[in-house]
Structures are given as C-alpha cells and as structure tokens.
Design a protein around this nucleic acid. Structure first.
Length: 617
DNA sequence: ATTAGGG
DNA sequence: CCCTAAT
C-alpha cells in the first residue's frame, strides 16, 4: 500500500501539481509560498513514484491531524494512482462524515428531489466548502457535459450483461420507463430520475434493503444482490464508479448540494470497492437521497450563461494557473474547452481558501482561486436556501449564521473573503469594518439631523456581502443588489451638494470613505436614479405619493433636495458652459448658498413643484 | 482613472 | 447594476 506523505509547499503549488504518472512529481518551489501553512499531499505509489494526493486523501490527512487518534486507514489508494486520477475516483471515505451529519443531506436531498431551488446550489456549495471538506472527487473527466443518462449508458455497455440471468430481476434489461415502474413498485412513489444507473442502484438497494449496491451489479435474486463483478477486480469497478460520478459531477457541477451528495455517493461507492467500510456507514443512508436529488437535477443542464461565466472567469481570472495546470497534462490531448467547476471555499488548516475545480485534459485540478470581489456578500441564494430548509441543513444554517449574521458582518468578510481581500483589496477589510460600524449609527443621526424619521428598509445594518460573478465579457458581474440606505442616499446628496454632481470620485473619497462598496460609478448611478425619481414624482401631489413604488421609498424631502441640487447644478453649469469645468469647480467650492440658490431656483422656475420645495428646505 | 450614458 | 465609450 502506498502511504501518504506530506510535502510542504504552497497551496498554489499543490494544485498545480497534478503530476501524471509519466511526469515526475515536481515539488513546488517555496518561492511562491503565499501560504506556508498549506501542505501538499502526495502519495507514494507502489513504484515509488510520487503521486498527487487526491483531495480526499488530503482531507483525510487533515482529519488525522485534527484527530491523531484516528487510524491511518483508508488513505491507501485503491488502485493505481493513474486510474484514480483519471477517473476522479478518489478513495477514502472518511472525512465527510461530519458534513453529512450536519447537513442532514437526507432531508435536504429529499426536498430537493422535486424542487431544487436554483439558489440552493451555490449556498450548498458554500456550505460544503465551508465545512472544511475538500473532497472533490467528482471532477468532470470526460469532456462534454452530457446528460448523466448517456454516461450511464456508456457505463452499462462496458459492464457485464446480466440480463441473461434467469429468475432474477435483471434491472439491466429494463428501460428507463420500466425502471421507473419498478421504482414505483419498490418505493411506492414516482421518480423523475432518468438516470438508469441510478435507478437501478436505487431499486437494487430498495429490493435488497441494503445500501451496499455495487454500481455494476443490478441483478437481484431472492432479495439479495447478486454480485458478480467483484472478481473482476476493483479497478474495474472503480472505473465504473468513476464514470458514474463523472456524469454526476459534470452534470451538476453548479449545484453545491450536489457536491455534498456526490461526495457522499462517491465515498459510498468507493467503500464498496474496498473491504466493507463501516466508517462510511452514515453516508449510506443519505447517499440514495442525495443521489436522488442529484439525478433529479440531472435533467437540467447548466445555464448557458452559467457556463459562460465560469469559463470566462477561468480564463480571465486564472488563466495563468490554469495553463500551469495544463502543462502537467501534456501527454493527454487537451479538450478544446476546459470545464470549470464552481468555486468553493475550502477551509484548510483553519484558513479559508477559495478554490476552483478545473478539469483540464480530463484531470480534475483544484486550483486556488481568488475571485475579485469588490463587494462581498454571500449570494442571496444562501439565505434563500436556508429558508427552504430551515431544519434540513444544520451545517448550512450554522455556516450562514456564523458568517452572515447581522452582527457578525465583519467576521464574514474577514473569514470568508480573507484571502480575497488580502490579495485583491487589502484595504477593503478595515474599511468595511468601519463602514459597518458607522452604518449602524449614521442612519439615525442623519435622520435626526434632517428631522426625518425614516426606518431604513434595506436594513443596511446587516452586512451585505456581495458575491461577484464572473462574466462573459470580463470582469465581474452582478453581486447582490445592495440597496441604498437612506443614510447613503443622504450622504450622496450631501456630497453632491458639497462637491457638485459629477465629481463622484471626490464624493466617494470624501463622503463615502466608509462605504467601500459604493464606487464612484455607483454614486453616479444612484444620483441619476435619484434625479429621475425626484423629477418623476409629481410634486404637486403632496401627500405621501412618494410611496408609489414600495421598493424604494425615498423620503420626499430627499427627493426634493435632489431636485433642488439638480436645478442648481444645471443652473451653475449651463451659463458657464464656455468656461466648462473650471466654472463648475469654482462653483462647487462649497455651495454655501445652496439654499439661496435653491430658493432662487424655486422662484425662477415658478412652478408649483418648487413652491413645495421652498417649504421643505 | 474618471465620467457620462445606455442597457 | 453592468458595460463601454470618451475623456
């Protein structure tokens, strides 16, 4: 048996090292060790070759480190490193117990089987990742993201045909439809799963009342599963399992939940191959459900945009690393396109590392990645998911609560985006912190100062970390819509009045120093919106008609003021247009006479709207 | 790097 | 909000 050794190295190095059997394993040079705490795991193959450890192994070691008492079992690779790698079948199944327990995949999966909120995906992913499990056994190996069914079919064809057996239930002969019937007969419920393999396994498990169903055996006899393929050697089985998982992984790579279930499944399958593994026992129960969910999801392929974004992100953000990874796969023809799996946050040694799984040349490579985030915040999906499964995801719930608690905002930024901030926006963290703390107080103060009693609907006190998404055209796209708070609006207005509209960088720097997440562009946009709003609203209608749109109830006074400022601005710039900016600059010096101007403006414009203005300001 | 605008 | 063209 091989043993796993720890090789110190940079985390980057670790991921790049997907050395192949042919290429000698190269230890990453310590030079680019950004994070010395991360170790590279390597397995010594029987030949004495060094083989990159799988994530599972890695996890295993971690677990060992954590708990010395644990035996160093399992880790041994099941077969050849190559086979293992190429098939993405990572052996060992131990570390994920915790997560499975906490996440209670059973419930979750059960729920998800029918309706899988899209939002659940990412959250689930986060969850999984956050749980500190790296187990990423399912990397897409074989290129095209095709339906799992096709994959399973391929798999089936490669396995022995048991259909000849008599007097036995030979699931292999059944069509999907038939399988569905059997499924229903077995479980008393319908299933939408179209994956033959899955159906067979599920049914087999049901009929044999056992979870120990090989992926390659589907002949049931006397309530027992007939296992014929074991002699073939686990290697064979492994391949099969690998394929199956591959399909799954590829299919639902965007589904985090999926990761969870898949991993579990993976381990489950693997365990069969090995001598009975009771350690993974707990996973069995959830496996089917997880698989169920997974299969159900299988029907749907990732959105085009999703793919675009992922691939884009990969090439844009991590092109360098990806390439580096590719180098190691030289001997194998590279797929025209690399498939990227969703990024996950992996907690290693207490550190949070954002990683991304790439499949290059059929090899799953976990690449540390840093999404450039301007504003950090978990996707709303996370929250949504939580709502959907309030009780089903202990882990997730915990995670969310911990990371995104209203009061733990800073923490969230600190922990979840630690790396990100450190690398991309170093000053963000402290700034954010200030912003948060300030946010809590400012609104009230402002409100009082302005004689407004306005409860901020956006609840800006809660931290809004925004997840940025890589976009097809470069850059990041969309984060969580971060509602503008009243205080922000007021600050903006104030800033505009002070420095003049258009001087957004100034305003941002001076008035929005604490609001790191608002860019000058944001300010500009917001101002534009405010203007629109202020002018759109018919001032004639006094009352609180401003509430027309419940979404953003900007207090009338503010709108009015915006209007006033707008008028001033217009007045100031138009006359001196020839002077251009210069005049504008001069004018903005302080706008000490803003009120005067405002009044003037009102008088000049002489429309009823202005009159109201006067009164208010 | 900022701004202005369109989407 | 995002993206881009124009400064």
């Amino acid at each position: 048996m091989e043993k796993v050794v720890e090789v110190e190295g940079s985390d980057e190095g670790k991921f790049e090292e997907t050395g192949l059997e042919t290429s000698n394993f190269v230890l990453s040079s310590p030079k680019n060790v950004t994070d010395p705490v991360v170790y590279k795991l390597v397995r010594v193959d029987g030949n004495g070759r060094l083989v990159p450890a799988t994530d599972d192994e890695l996890m295993e070691v971690e677990g060992l480190l954590e708990n010395e008492k644990r035996e160093t079992h399992i880790v041994a690779d099941t077969g050849q490193a190559l086979g293992c790698i190429s098939n993405e079948v990572s052996p060992s199944g131990m570390p994920q117990l915790e997560s499975s327990e906490e996440a209670d995949p059973e419930k979750l999966s059960a729920y998800l089987e029918e309706t899988v909120p899209s939002g659940a995906k990412s959250s689930s992913d986060d969850h999984v990742t956050q749980s500190g499990r790296v187990g990423e056994c399912l990397k897409p190996l074989d290129g095209p993201l095709e339906g799992g069914s096709s994959t399973s079919t391929g798999f089936i064809s490669s396995k022995p045909d048991f259909s000849k057996l008599k007097g036995e239930i030979c699931l292999d002969n059944l069509s999907i439809k038939e399988l569905h019937e059997v499924f229903k007969a077995t479980f008393g419920r319908d299933t939408t799963v179209k994956d033959k393999l899955w159906l067979k396994r599920r049914i087999a498990m049901g009929l044999t009342n056992s979870c120990d169903v090989s992926t390659t055996t589907f002949v049931i006899k006397d309530n027992k599963l007939v296992k014929k393929d074991n002699e073939d050697g686990f290697n064979n089985v492994n391949l099969g399992a690998g394929k199956e998982h591959l399909a799954v992984a590829v299919e639902y790579n965007e589904d985090l939940l999926n990761n969870l279930s898949s991993q579990i499944d993976e381990h489950q399958t693997t365990s069969e191959v090995r001598l009975g593994n009771d350690v993974v026992e707990n996973n069995f129960a959830s496996e089917d459900l997880a698989a169920d969910q997974r299969a159900a999801k299988r029907v749907r392929k990732p959105t085009k945009r999703y793919i675009e974004e992922l691939s884009e992100a990969e090439s844009k953000e991590y092109g360098g690393r990806s390439i580096a990874s590719t180098k190691n796969i030289g001997f194998r023809p590279l797929p025209s396109k690399a498939h990227t799996r969703p990024a996950r946050n992996v907690s290693l040694e207490g550190r949070t590392v954002i990683t991304r799984l790439d499949s290059l040349g059929g090899f799953g490579i976990q690449v540390p990645c840093v999404y450039r985030i301007r504003r950090s915040r978990p996707r709303k999906n996370v929250t949504a998911l939580l709502k959907f499964h309030p009780s089903g995801m202990g882990m997730t719930a915990t995670f969310i609560k911990k990371g995104f608690d209203v009061h733990g905002s800073q923490m969230d930024n600190g922990s979840m985006n630690k790396v990100l901030e450190a690398k991309s926006t170093p000053e963000q963290a402290p700034e954010q912190f200030v912003a948060e703390s300030k946010k809590e107080t400012t609104p009230t103060d402002m409100g009082q100062n302005m004689g407004l009693k306005y409860v901020d609907p956006s609840g800006d006190t809660s931290d809004d970390n925004v997840v940025t998404v890589p976009t097809a055209k470069g850059g990041i796209r969309r984060k969580h819509h971060r509602a503008w708070t009243l205080s922000e609006v007021m600050k903006l207005v104030e800033g505009v009045s002070k420095y003049g509209a258009g001087r957004w960088s100034e305003i941002k720097r001076l008035a929005f120093a604490s609001y790191s997440y608002r860019t000058s562009v944001d300010l500009k946009d917001k101002w534009r919106n405010l203007l629109k709003a202020s002018f759109a609203q018919t001032p004639t209608e006094k009352g609180g008609n401003s509430r027309k749109h419940p979404s953003m109830p900007i207090p009338a006074p503010i709108l009015l003021r915006v209007r006033e400022l707008a008028e001033m601005q217009a007045q100031a710039s138009l006359p001196n247009l020839s002077t251009g900016k210069l005049s504008a600059c001069g004018g903005r010096s302080e706008w000490p006479f803003k009120y005067k101007l405002g009044t003037c403006e009102l008088t000049c414009s002489a429309d009823c709207q202005s009159s109201r203005f006067q009164m208010l300001w």
